[in-house]
């Protein structure tokens, strides 16, 4: 008790340093976790480099095994983004500029609902609803646009093609891109917009001249992040796609490329021995691809912010 005046600063300091230590440890923990993801996947994936064709589905080495999967992953994601990006930008404009103020918030919530639907439910929807209906459309495409290599056919009757997978992925990427875009669009300085309108610009001209230039980097990074989601999405693709593992640009036939994530989900539950390592190796490849895409997306977004901050 006698030492109170001296003691108190000491405990305070100790409490402070302990708390700061905890906080710092938590932050470092995140770095460790991220590094851990890379390290453990590498540890368990490396044995796959010496895998023999028995574990590689008849392919001679791991590169030949992974390459068609990379192709399928990129193709599905690219298709998804081609569909999702224009749609999401339109949607974001509806929320930020077109819809009456009273409606725009509920619309935003509804779009967020799309993001809340679990991927396995999208899978069910893709098989039961989307696939059979798109299957009919594919028949029409093959008949009428069959001269294009994408629609060469023969069309898949069940509709479980890479294009269907792309549509499902597009629906899943849509809310992410929309959310970021609408955030950026609504941040466009009101003065710029009013200035454009005052000069006699139509609403579309105002958007083209003020909103888009202001939000360009944000839009690009939003699309990149949506792409990250589409690249890594697993269950919906695993359920919807009828995969054979070929490399083709025919989007509507029953012979389709597979994606890395779907291939892991389908193969893992019954894999054993070196086969597990092969799948983990392909997971490592997927991790690297998504890491690079997300990295670029964030980098572009970050640069945009610096510019805006002038």
């Amino acid at each position: 008790m006698t030492a109170v005046p001296l003691d108190r600063p000491a405990t305070t300091r100790r409490g402070d340093s302990v708390f700061k230590g905890l906080a710092t440890a938590a932050a470092v923990m995140i770095l460790v976790a991220l590094a851990g993801v890379g390290i453990f996947l590498t540890l368990e994936g490396v044995p796959a480099l010496s895998a023999e064709s028995g574990a590689l589905g008849g392919k001679d080495n791991i590169v030949l095994y992974v390459w068609p999967l990379i192709y399928g992953t990129l193709l599905a994601a690219a298709l998804a983004i081609l569909m999702a990006a224009p749609l999401s930008i339109g949607l974001a404009l509806v929320i930020s500029h077109y819809a009456p103020r009273r409606l725009s918030k509920p619309i935003g919530y509804v779009i967020d609902l799309l993001a809340a639907v679990p991927s396995v439910v999208y899978g069910l929807w893709g098989i039961e609803f989307l696939g059979p209906r798109l299957g009919q459309a594919y028949g029409w495409l093959a008949e009428n646009l069959g001269f294009l290599p994408f629609f060469e056919g023969p069309a898949s009757g069940s509709g479980r093609t890479i294009l269907t997978a792309g549509v499902v992925l597009a629906v899943m990427a849509l809310p992410i891109i929309t959310a970021i875009c609408r955030e950026i669009f609504s941040q466009t300085p009101v003065l710029h917009q009013e200035a454009a309108l005052a000069l006699g610009a139509t609403r579309w001209e105002m958007i083209r001249l003020t909103v888009f230039p202001y939000g360009r980097s944000g839009m690009i990074s939003a699309v990149m992040l949506g792409m990250g989601r589409a690249l890594g999405e697993t269950m919906a693709v695993a359920m919807v796609l009828s995969a054979t593992g070929v490399v083709t640009i025919n989007l509507i036939s029953s012979v389709n490329p597979s994606t890395i994530a779907a291939n892991i989900a389908l193969g893992f539950p019954e894999a054993s021995g070196i086969k597990v390592n092969v799948l983990i190796f392909s997971g490592l490849v997927l991790f690297l691809i998504t890491f690079v895409v997300n990295f670029l997306g964030r980098l572009i977004a970050g640069r945009g912010q610096v510019k805006e901050g002038r």
Binding site: V37, S119, R229, L231, G232, I264, G283, L286, F291, R298
Partner: peptide, 14 residues
């Protein structure tokens, strides 16, 4: 930010 983009299946493999 980058971590938010980790595919869920990669997290499972980890």
């Amino acid at each position: 930010d980058v971590m938010t983009g980790i595919p869920s299946i990669v997290a499972g493999l980890f």
